[in-house]
Structures are given as C-alpha cells and as structure tokens.
Amino acid sequence: MSDLRVPKLWREIPQHYRLEASKCLTCGRIYFPPKTVCNNCKSKNFEKTLLPRKGVIETFTIIRQAPSKYELYVPYAVAVVKLENGVKVLSQITDCEPDKLQIGMPVEAVIRRLYDDGENGVIHYGFKFRPVF
C-alpha cells in the first residue's frame, strides 16, 4: 500500500513547485501556504502572488535520526528560511555541507525530490533551498 495520498500532494503543486502564496488585498499580508481569509484583517479579498526565491537561514537543524523514507538523505539540514519579502518557509537545505551552515546564510530555491513513495509509488517534487553560489 502506498503511504502517499496522491491527490493531497498533487493539490499543493503550485505551492511546492512555484512557491505560490496568497496576498490579502486589504492589508497586504502574504500567506504561505495560501489562505483565503485573512487572520490579520478578516478580509476575504486575496490575490495569488509568487514568493521570492531567495532568502536567509533564520534557524536550522541537522536531522540525524530521520522519519522512515528519509533515511537515504541522513544527515540532512532543515531550516526556516526568511525570504526577501519577510515571509518564512520551512525547507530542507540541499547541496550543503551541514557543518558549514550558519544562521543568516543566503540561500536560494531549487526544485528537488521531496518524497519518494517507494519504487512503485509516485515521486513528489518540491522546493528546497541551497546555499547561494
């Protein structure tokens, strides 16, 4: 049996591939993942917006005991990335040397395999960030 709920992740492709967020047209707040009611001003007027693809590491961890299906990548880094517009996203930091990561390090978005549901299952792709070079 597959662990992956295919429609559940398929639905998130605009966010996972292209960092699509929603912006409140009344107060300007940006939500990722997108919301359709504003927690700040309660407005329901939203427009789609793309997040910037560059930011800095706000905090990070190196995962050394991974949930099953992520063991191939151990050790891997997961970080909170603060994007250029102030929006924060959680992401793996790929193509990095974990021991050299630092708070404040500039990173940029790339598309990678996020989750591989076994050799018979679907491959789910999505953004990760890597150190800018």
Binding site: Q92, D95, V110, I111, R112, L114, Y125, K128
Partner: peptide, 13 residues
C-alpha cells in the same frame, strides 16, 4: 546527481 536529484529536477534548473 545528489540523492534528491533526477532527470526532472536537472531539466527544471
């Protein structure tokens, strides 16, 4: 290719 890369991710970049 890194462990999270394949032909699709390479093509995308």
């Amino acid at each position: 290719a890194g462990p999270d890369e394949d032909t699709a991710t390479i093509a995308i970049e």
